[in-house]
Computed example of a mutant assay.
Amino acid sequence: MFSLENTIAPAAPALDELVPSRYALKVGDIDVLVVSDGVLPLPTQMLGHNVQASERAEWFDEMYLPQDAFDWALNVMVVHSGERTILIDAGLGMDPDLQLPRAGQLIRRLGAAGIDLREITDVVITHMHMDHIGGLLVDGVKAQLRPDLKIHVAASEVAFWKSPDFTRTNMPQGFPDALRATATHFWAEYGSFVHTFEDEHEIAPGVVARRTGGHTPGHCVVRVASGGQALTFAGDAVFAVGFDQPNWHNGFEHDPEEAARVRIELLNALAGTGEMLVATHLPFPSVGRVSREGEAFRWVPVFWDF
Rank of each mutant, 00 (worst) to 15 (best):
F2W: 10
S3G: 04
L4T: 14
L4A: 06
E5Q: 15
N6C: 00
I8A: 13
A12N: 13
A12V: 11
P13V: 09
P13F: 06
E17W: 12
L18V: 11
P20C: 08
P20H: 07
R22Y: 11
Y23I: 09
V27L: 11
V27G: 07
D31H: 14
S36H: 12
Q45W: 08
L47V: 12
N50E: 01
N50G: 00
V51P: 02
S54D: 14
R56K: 13
E58A: 15
W59H: 05
Y64P: 00
A69M: 09
D71C: 00
A73M: 08
V76S: 14
V79N: 10
H80N: 14
S81F: 08
G93V: 00
D95W: 10
D95I: 01
D95Y: 07
P96I: 02
P96H: 05
L100K: 09
L100V: 04
P101M: 04
R102H: 14
R102K: 15
G104K: 12
Q105T: 11
R108V: 00
R109N: 02
L110N: 03
L110H: 06
G111W: 13
G111A: 15
E119T: 14
T121H: 11
D122P: 04
T126Q: 04
M130T: 07
I133V: 12
G135S: 14
I151R: 06
V153C: 09
V153N: 11
E157N: 06
F160T: 01
D165Y: 06
F166T: 10
T167S: 15
T169Q: 00
M171N: 08
G174P: 05
P176A: 02
P176S: 03
D177K: 14
W187L: 13
E189A: 15
F193K: 15
D199K: 12
H201R: 15
E202M: 14
V207E: 11
V207R: 10
A209F: 05
G214L: 11
V222P: 01
S226L: 05
Q229A: 12
F233T: 05
G235N: 03
F239C: 10
F239Q: 08
A240M: 13
G242M: 02
W248F: 02
E258K: 13
R263C: 08
R263D: 01
L266F: 00
L267H: 03
T273G: 02
G274H: 12
V278T: 02
A279S: 08
H281L: 07
L282T: 00
F284C: 03
P285D: 03
S286I: 03
S286G: 14
V287A: 05
R289E: 02
V290F: 03
R292G: 02
E295R: 12
A296L: 07
W304E: 15
F306N: 08
